[in-house]
Amino acid sequence: MIEFKNVVKQYPNGTIGLNNINLNIKEGEFVVIVGLSGAGKSTLLRSINRLHDISSGEILVDGKSITRANGKQLRRIRRDIGMIFQSFNLVKRATVLRNVLSGRVGYHSTFSTMFGYFPKEDHDIALDALTRVNIREKAYIRADQLSGGQQQRVSIARALAQKPKVILADEPVASLDPLTTRQVMDDLQRINRELKITTIVNLHFIDLAREYATRIIGLRAGEVVFDGPVSEATDAKFSEIYGRPINEDELLAADAPKGGVTV
């Protein structure tokens, strides 16, 4: 589904963002990328839909090279990749439905969308996407009236409205509290299972990674230092990825009130 071939990202100031990455992510996988901040998680994710350009190498999405794609081709590939952001990235003063509908623009010509009109099928798709994340009833409310967790679900619905083959989520729960974190992660997992959408998530919390992922990729200083199923991602492995013992704040359970949750 997604193939990284010798991908290198070097910033203009010489820093290496990604160092010779080779990965092959298969259809329907729920991949969680872990690593310290600055390890290149976000760069890796954003290079998949070319929000960041890479310096050399090639990335294939569904067999097509996004690295070489241009203009229309690039937009056509991006249309198949939904993205979810840490800060939701909604138009706050627009209604929930308008936000979700904006995920449909890739399917229409620039001219026909300029008037802001969407055909009925698009409305149905958007409402269906909202139903999937259980906020159908908020469709006509302004986005800024919703809580953080609800806003993140709207942005999931927006990604779903694209009818994507892949969903990228860049720290989707970093600005949420533990309870809504689980709701959002549950939504992502359900969508991954029900719609067979390949999902790649950057996460800070390693217990969440273990709980939801089917495959974990560990990054350290722009290199893949771990790639395997959850069963192999032991505490010792995580210490290796992080280059030090696991901290309390890297566990979601540590943030939550004292309960029975153990890692």
């Binding site: 839909n49 929000l51 690039l74 937009r75 056509r76 590939i77 991006r78 249309r79 198949d80 990749i81 939904g82 993205m83 952001f85 800060s87 939701f88 990235n89 909604l90 138009v91 904006s102 995920g103 623009v105 890739g106 620039t110 942005s155 927006r158 990604a159 694209q162 990228l168």
Partner: peptide, 12 residues
Amino acid sequence: GPREALVSSGAS
């Protein structure tokens, strides 16, 4: 943020 989101969804 919204600009980034639209770009990532394939908008012109």
